[in-house]
Design a protein around this nucleic acid. Sequence first.
DNA 1: CTACATGCAAATCCTTTGCATCCAC
DNA 2: GTGGATGCAAAGGATTTGCATGTAG
Lengths: 148, 148
Amino acid sequence: MPDEIETLLEELRSRGYRITMQRRLVIEMLSASTESHHSCEAVTEALAAQGARIDHATVYRVLQWLKDVGLIAQTDLGEGRDVYSWLGGERHHHLICLNCGRVISVDDSLFDSLRRILLKDYGFQARIEHFAIFGLCQDCAEKTASGE
Amino acid sequence: MPDEIETLLEELRSRGYRITMQRRLVIEMLSASTESHHSCEAVTEALAAQGARIDHATVYRVLQWLKDVGLIAQTDLGEGRDVYSWLGGERHHHLICLNCGRVISVDDSLFDSLRRILLKDYGFQARIEHFAIFGLCQDCAEKTASGE
DNA sequence: CTACATGCAAATCCTTTGCATCCAC
DNA sequence: GTGGATGCAAAGGATTTGCATGTAG
């Protein structure tokens, strides 16, 4: 797999971007992680854990850059801070319970029909990369219906 | 129209909520405004403009309360702060072009099938009150396809 | 060598909170 | 009268910025 990363880095370099050690480390970390999304703080800590101390301002700048070049998506999950997710693997989205905070992952295909309609009716190419849909999970919906 | 507001306030009162002057003013302002969404600061300023100086902490608390009772929706449009929109009229959502910034309004019925699927497959009651979908509008999509 | 990226620290901005006072019910 | 709401000021937390220094190309 490191080969894939090298190829990616080479492509970025050829697009005119500078590949610094910090950018390389963030990319390697995000692309290898099993976590689906990371806060800036989480990225900083994960790198620190492997011995790379990178200033949080730099992490923010690298994340901004990765978002600009389209390698990650930035999402507000209502946690008071943004989270970032690597767009390499298969896309997924999140259902977030307003009551208990549970997060349910759903497949990207869920948005296929929506994308089709938007394209057909509005000529709009939706870039739904990482959606967060708020609502009530089954348990909380039942509780709310009966209890209060 | 003031009658509708009075009825609404009366219902809230009967639900056990206290109707303070501040809450009344925020409700009147939001429900009467032609703007589709307001930041907390915008609300505070609009009220100040009509002579009502309300502390911003109070405005935040009133907005939080209005969200809890389901009268407004809170949305992050990627502007670095949240915006709030009155849910009185017919619901609508926005398609936002990443390239030219154009905003296209779309009907709420667009999400009917998505809501149905989420409820059926996940038991999840989606509260899609005010969605912002980013992407490329027709003009920009064509330009991008040919140009770059 | 030169432009761009980083580190550091300080600043900014939005939002929340503690607490005394006030007021809706 | 009393519990919840407000105002004020201050704290909190995420993100950004200015500037000197480091480094990729």
